[in-house]
Design a protein around this nucleic acid. Structure first.
Lengths: 145, 145
DNA sequence: CTTTAATCAGATAAAATAATCTGTTTATAA
DNA sequence: TTATAAACAGATTATTTTATCTGATTAAAG
């Protein structure tokens, strides 16, 4: 198989987009998130805990507790989430798996791939949770089974 | 972690590029390939066996046996190798892991990601093993440990 | 014809990723 | 103040991917 983001990262991105689509400050339980997004509750809970450690998400314990974004969604870029979960290695490693791939000793795809990779990086840097709110709401509205 | 191609696919691409950099018709053993590319012999052997089944590679059994490309390297696109090993699912599945991601019910990144994905697809379709021969030779020349 | 060196086939092992479970702590609300 | 519902912590399990092993078959070369 081929993957861009790990499952952890996909779920993490879905979850923070979901949080960003809620009203500011609203606390959402992992149970709610898991049900809405159709992903394992314990798993998404773990992921949000790690994003809490990373400072992107805040949590509230106890009854009526849950998660909420730690910053205004305009200040959270997709790249921040990816960096916190999967890391940025993908933007700095050879697409063909060659060692030492660099401008000095480029792999056969170095330039062509480099251009695509940069576009992807820029896109993830430009897009904030805020900017995607409308689209997220739309997608969520059609997640019913 | 984040990945574009599986290890299998990375090794497979490296191996066919290596074969394409050899003289036409030259038979190369998996042992040779493994040593040169610094990848596990049995693993690359398995991968080349599967590419043989896919019709991209031919094999020669017995002493002095090994592998060679089944077609002229100008007729093998990178996409063919990726398709044979990882499949093309990545070009047809949601980058955020949302179900049912389509123009009707797009995920928040549907358009932006779609553009990048198409660029990647086109690149892999345009690049043939032949076109990458010079660059492959250069890279291989600097693989020494 | 025998030795040797290769692919091939299938089983197995190891490592990484994904998912689940068990119990503890915490805070709300009845 | 007690019941409840949540995050949290850590261990465990399951699945997938990566890698290795064992033996069989094949073909070239001495």
């Amino acid at each position: 198989m081929t993957v861009i983001f790990s499952k952890k990262c996909e779920y993490g991105l879905q979850a923070v987009l979901y949080l960003a689509a809620k009203d500011a400050g609203e606390v959402v339980s992992s149970d709610d998130i898991a049900k809405k997004l159709n992903i394992p509750k314990e798993f998404v809970s773990k992921i949000l805990q790690s994003l809490t450690d990373s400072g992107l998400v805040n949590s509230k314990k106890g009854k009526a507790g849950g998660f909420l974004l730690a910053k205004h969604p305009a200040n959270i870029r997709l790249l921040d989430v990816v960096a916190a979960i999967d890391g940025l290695e993908i933007f700095n490693s050879c697409v063909l798996g060659f060692p030492n791939c660099s401008p000095d000793h480029p792999c056969p795809l170095h330039e062509k791939w480099g251009a695509l990779r940069t576009s992807a990086y820029n896109m993830l840097t430009e897009q904030t949770l805020d900017q995607l709110k409308e689209k997220t709401l739309n997608k969520i509205a059609h997640l019913e089974v």
